[in-house]
């Protein structure tokens, strides 16, 4: 009987670790995107990855890790707050830039062909 509990606990911690690792990886990808993308309106999309999937995975992993306790309820509250506030904040930033007259770069943005580069 004790064996089952041990295995279940192990699986729970493994699942929690995998979810948190996935969330941290998505967060890193979002940060790289914020640093790498060429335009303000494009960077918003990269920041959106951090706000959504990374949050879901990290908080989900922490909830699985802590089990049915008060901490997991608080973590769920944190997730709800982030889910309510982050799209509003993102929309506020984008709308302020749009109203201030910042023009997005449209069309196709591609890296220059190797033969057009100086060292190519």
């Amino acid at each position: 009987m004790i064996e089952w509990g041990v295995w279940l606990d192990l699986a729970r911690h493994g699942l929690a670790g995998a979810m948190m690792l996935a969330g941290a990886c998505f967060m890193l990808i979002g940060s790289i995107g914020v640093l790498r993308l060429p335009d303000f309106y494009a960077r918003i999309h990269a920041a959106g990855i951090t706000d959504t999937l990374a949050t879901i995975f990290l908080l989900g992993g922490m909830i699985v890790e802590s089990g049915l306790t008060q901490t997991s309820a608080k973590l769920a509250l944190v997730g709800m707050l982030l889910f309510l506030t982050s799209p509003t904040a993102t929309h506020a930033v984008a709308n302020a830039a749009h109203k201030a007259g910042l023009k997005p770069r449209l069309g196709t943005i591609a890296p220059p062909h190797p033969r057009d580069r100086e060292d190519g």
């Binding site: 309106y41 918003i44 999309h45 990269a46 959106g48 990855i49 706000d51 959504t52 999937l53 889910f83 982050s86 799209p87 509003t88 993102t90 929309h91 984008a94 709308n95 830039a97 749009h98 109203k99």
Partner: peptide, 15 residues
């Protein structure tokens, strides 16, 4: 609807 558009990466509602 506007919040869902913003939440989905790749689309942002700006006005």
């Amino acid at each position: 609807f506007a919040n869902s558009i913003t939440l989905t990466p790749g689309t942002v509602s700006i006005d």
